[in-house]
Design a protein around this nucleic acid. Structure first.
Lengths: 334, 334
DNA sequence: TTGAAAGCGCTAACAG
DNA sequence: CTGTTAGCGCTTTCAA
C-alpha cells in the first residue's frame, strides 16, 4: 500500500489537517512543522492521491478529447498542441477515438462525464443535438476544434476555410493560371467541405474567370485515394486546366501520383496547390505548395478556451490565420 | 450539482446500498426494486461518479501512455491500437508526451502515479534506472512498446528488428542486387538502431556479398531530412550501389527525393526499400516497398499485456511478425 | 499555529 | 432481500 496522509501525519507528529496545509501551501503552520512534514513525506515516499483529492475538490485535473480518428497526421498535430498546453496548465488529457460513430461518441461523452473530466475538446465533427444535450448534462466547458456549430453556443477554433481556399486559389490566379479546377473533399461536411468550395468559387469570379460547377470534382472524403481517383476525371472533363486546388494535402498528393501515371508533369504541365500543410506536404515530389492550418496552435487554443471558460463562463471563438507555404508544385506562367 | 447515489436512493425509497447493488449487478435485490431504482436513475439522470468509485475500489479504469513524441505517424498508429483495445476493455487512456526528456518523463510518471492509473505503457524510449525505480514505486504493471530492457524485467512488444532488416536486405539480394548500401538511423539507439544494421550485415555476409562499414551511412535520427542528406553521401562513396535499405520509411522517402534531384531514377537506377510501412509509404512516388511493422497491433498487445499483468502478475513479451510489403521502389534485375 | 471532525460519493461487510 | 455503517484519502470549516 501507498502511504497516506495519515501515515505522514503520524510520522511527523502532527494532524492530517496540518499535512494537508503544507501540501497545499495554505497558511497555518510554522516553519518548523513544515520541515517536519516535508521530511516525513520524503522518508515515506508519500504521493498525494489525486483521486481522493478530486473527490473533495470536485475537479480531476483532466480534460477529455474526442477525435473522429486518432491515427492520421492531422489529429496527431492537434493532439500534440492539446497535450502540451494542458500539461503545462496542470491538466492531463484522456483521448477518445469516436470513429465518427454517433453511438460510440455518446458512450464516450457519458464515460468522460462519469470520470468527471473538467472540460471537453471536440474535434472535427459536427455537434448533433444528442451531443449537445450530453454536454449540457455534464455541465463542463466544451471547446470545438476544426468545426463549429450554428445551432449551439459552443466556442470554436479553426481557420476561415472559405478565406483560406480563396487565398490558395488566388495564388494560382496570381501565378498566371486562367483555367483552374478543384478537387474538393466531401461538400456535405458542412464545416470543412462547403467553405473551401465557396472560397474557390469566389476567387474565380472575383478575378473575372469563368466558373462552372463542373470545375470542382467532389470526393467522398479528403484522402489520398480521392486524389488519385478524381484528378483524372477532372482532367478529362477539362483538359484545358493548368492548375488545381486540392481541398487537402492528401488529395493533392494523390493527384500528383495520378498525374505521374498519366505522364503529366507537376508543375510543368499542371500546377497543384494543397491545403493543411501536413508533414506529407514537404515530403512529396515535388514539395507541395499549400495553405497551412496551424493545427498545433488550434490544440493549444482549445485548451486555453476550456480553461478560460472554467473561470469566466464564456469565451470567444477564434479564427486562426492560415498561411500560404510556397514550395514547388505551382508554376508561374505568363 | 449532479445527483448522487443518495438522491437516487431517496427517490426510489431504498437504501444507497441497494442502489449500489443494482448499479453493479450484485445479487441481493428483487426485480421490483430493480425497476424502481432504474426508474429513479433515469428520472434524475443519475451518473455514477467514477472518482468516488475509484477511491474505494482502488482502481481508476485508466492507463497512462508515455510517448517521446505524439505527433508523428508512428505514435499515432500505436496510440490508435492502445486506445481501441483499452476502451474495449473498459479503460481510458491518458497520453503524455515526454519529448524524450528525462526530467519531463519523470514528472509524468509521478503525475500518473498520483492519478493512480492502473497501468502504464511506455513507448520507444530506453528505460533508465530512474524510470524503473519510479515504475516500482507506482506498483502497477508496465508494458514496453518498440523498445525493451535488458536490465529490468519489463515485458515488451516489438518486432525483431534484426530479423526484419535481414528480410528487407534479403529481398534486395533476391531481386538480383549485389551492391547494396544502407542508410541507418541512430545506431546508438540500441533498440531500433543497432538491430537493423546487424540484420543488414548478416544478410550480406550470408549471401557471400562483401560487407564494409562504409556501406552503411549512419544518421542522427530516422527522419526525412536524414534521408535527403545521406543518400548523396552514400552514393558518392559507393557509386556502384544499385539498391539501398533505409532504416525507416521517412529516410527512404528522403532518399527518393534526393535521388530525384540527382537525376537518379527510382527504381530504374537505384532501388530503395524502407522500414515501417507508414501511410507515407504508399503515398510516395514510386510507392515504397517496405517492411511493415504492425504498430496498431503493438498498441493493442501492450494493453493486453498490462491487463494480463494485473491478474497474473507476469506476462511474456511478444515479438510480432513483420511483413514485407512489395510496391514499386525495388527493381528486379538479372 | 494547530487539531477534531464532518463530509466528498461510493462500496462492502455485517446485521437483520 | 434490504438497510446500517464503516471506511477509501483528502480538504475544510470550526474550535482551541
Amino acid at each position: 500500500m501507498n502511504p497516506t496522509i495519515q501515515d505522514v501525519a503520524k510520522a511527523a507528529n502532527v494532524s492530517i489537517a496540518t499535512v494537508s496545509r503544507v501540501l497545499n501551501n495554505q497558511p497555518g503552520f510554522s516553519e518548523k512543522t513544515r520541515i517536519k512534514v516535508l521530511e516525513a513525506i520524503e522518508e515515506l515516499g508519500y504521493q498525494p492521491n489525486a483521486i481522493a483529492r478530486g473527490l473533495v475538490n470536485r475537479n480531476t485535473g483532466t480534460i477529455g478529447v474526442l477525435f473522429p480518428s486518432v491515427s492520421g497526421m492531422l489529429s496527431a498535430e492537434v493532439l500534440h498542441g492539446i497535450e502540451a498546453r494542458a500539461h503545462e496548465q496542470g491538466y492531463s488529457v484522456i483521448v477518445c477515438n469516436t470513429a465518427a460513430d454517433p453511438e460510440k461518441t455518446l458512450r464516450y461523452i457519458q464515460l468522460l462525464s462519469e470520470k468527471r473530466v473538467d472540460g471537453l475538446v471536440f474535434v472535427s465533427e459536427e455537434v448533433t443535438e444528442d451531443y449537445y444535450k450530453a454536454f449540457q448534462r455534464m455541465g463542463v466547458p466544451v471547446a470545438l476544434v476544426l468545426t463549429q456549430s450554428y445551432k449551439y453556443p459552443l466556442p470554436y477554433v479553426k481557420v476561415d476555410d472559405s478565406h483560406a481556399a480563396y487565398t490558395a486559389t488566388r495564388y494560382l490566379i496570381d501565378s498566371g493560371h486562367k483555367h483552374i479546377g478543384m478537387i474538393s473533399g466531401n461538400p456535405t461536411e458542412l464545416m470543412a467541405g462547403m467553405g473551401r468550395i465557396e472560397g474557390f468559387k469566389r476567387a474565380l469570379l472575383e478575378a473575372g474567370l469563368p466558373y462552372s460547377d463542373s470545375l470542382v470534382e467532389t470526393s467522398t472524403s479528403f484522402t489520398y485515394e480521392n486524389g488519385v481517383e478524381n484528378f483524372p476525371k477532372l482532367m478529362e472533363r477539362h483538359p484545358e486546366i493548368t492548375a488545381v486546388f486540392a481541398a487537402s494535402d492528401e488529395i493533392a498528393i494523390g493527384a500528383i501520383a495520378a498525374a505521374y501515371k498519366m505522364d503529366i508533369q507537376i508543375p510543368e504541365d499542371v500546377s497543384i496547390i494543397g491545403y493543411d500543410n501536413l508533414k506529407h506536404a514537404e515530403m512529396s515530389i515535388p514539395p507541395l505548395t499549400t495553405v497551412a492550418q496551424p493545427f498545433q496552435r488550434m490544440g493549444e487554443k482549445a485548451i486555453e478556451m476550456v480553461l478560460a471558460m472554467k473561470q469566466e463562463k464564456n469565451t470567444e471563438s477564434s479564427i486562426l490565420s492560415h498561411e500560404l507555404v510556397e514550395r514547388d508544385s505551382v508554376k508561374k506562367i505568363n
